[in-house]
Design a binder for these strands. Sequence first.
DNA 1: TGTACATCAGTGAACGCGCGTTCACTGATGTAC
DNA 2: TGTACATCAGTGAACGCGCGTTCACTGATGTAC
Lengths: 205, 205
Amino acid sequence: MPKRGYHHGNLRQALVEAALRLVEAKGPTGFTLSEAAKQAGVTPAAVYRHFEGREELIAEAARQGFLMFADLMQHAYDKYQPSALAAFEATGRAYLAFARKYPGHYIAMFESGISVNRTPELANAAHRARTILEKAAEDLSQHIPEEKRPPASMFSAHILAMSHGVVELYARNTPGATSPFPPEDLLETGIGIYLRGLGLIDPDT
Amino acid sequence: MPKRGYHHGNLRQALVEAALRLVEAKGPTGFTLSEAAKQAGVTPAAVYRHFEGREELIAEAARQGFLMFADLMQHAYDKYQPSALAAFEATGRAYLAFARKYPGHYIAMFESGISVNRTPELANAAHRARTILEKAAEDLSQHIPEEKRPPASMFSAHILAMSHGVVELYARNTPGATSPFPPEDLLETGIGIYLRGLGLIDPDT
DNA sequence: TGTACATCAGTGAACGCGCGTTCACTGATGTAC
DNA sequence: TGTACATCAGTGAACGCGCGTTCACTGATGTAC
């Protein structure tokens, strides 16, 4: 589907990709509708054939990000079955891996300031991702003695929080902020200590 | 020092406070130099008597934030001495407390996209805050058997990451993002499990 | 104490810029007969 | 197969806006004598 000629062919997706490139290169505020249109080789007005406006465009980028993110986590989860522990650890690592591999999507999802409820489609995609992590936590929860078992959704929130914190503070290019350890190691050890605290890992290993 | 008349009296600080108000009300991108000047009852051009430009103004707001943050942590640390454990826990909680109490400063510090090295003064203030947390971690580190003791700066990074993640994901007003638990509880339990994992809390409590 | 004057913190007008958005339009595409 | 026509994805000009920044200026303040 070549893009020569008056009609673009697949402008909608081209705009999303331009937005991702911009946001990756210039940060969450670096994205403008006009610039995205320009990069796609099109007049700003053409954008309105495909999106209601600036916000819908970035929301679509975030939506695609959440879908990819969910796929990545699902894949990690499946791969380490039937070990609940390994699967849970893998989903935690998937967070950082995603931020590394798809910085544009990551920014659109978590740093662009857009609400996850901006559109129903976006909310849906975000929900799907969350569900997978919570399933992994639920599996793991079965291995803890019932009387001292915290809610599974609390695990997933803890792991998500630590993962997000590591990414934001140590993995994203906050220029000049020197990271004391490789983020991957930091997250790995952090999750390890946490799981030891839950009694799921032998304290002597 | 009343502000009537041609001369303002303390415009520099008034501008910082206006910026903080704006950023708190409208998010990290909601701040503009012109609007801050207007709120301080002054022409945009007047700002240039006190700051090199927009960036220097927000950097000053962030600097003041880091100083207050460091004070808060220092206070928490002192209060729970000589218990290394209690002091460490307290500094973790101080992070969330700060974000709650001074959202404008928090945004300027962590969400405005400004580099901590934007100005030497800012870098200094940030360093002071970091140092306190690392001191608390260092104290705590002494209570772990030497051969299985991870670097103290790794503790503080873990706790900082989890605290930051909890704030960003569950405490800031991401509109519509329902938090599954009160952020304070989430952080409290998360840190508790983590410290248990380090063998610093009795596993049966 | 009064006056002359230097200093300095503000004004206000102007600038160029890129933004998001609108509108009437036109050229390309696809389809019915 | 060829032609007429409806559909639709783009154009390009225009808009009003608020932004950050500059400049020559002016009014207030503080100080030396």
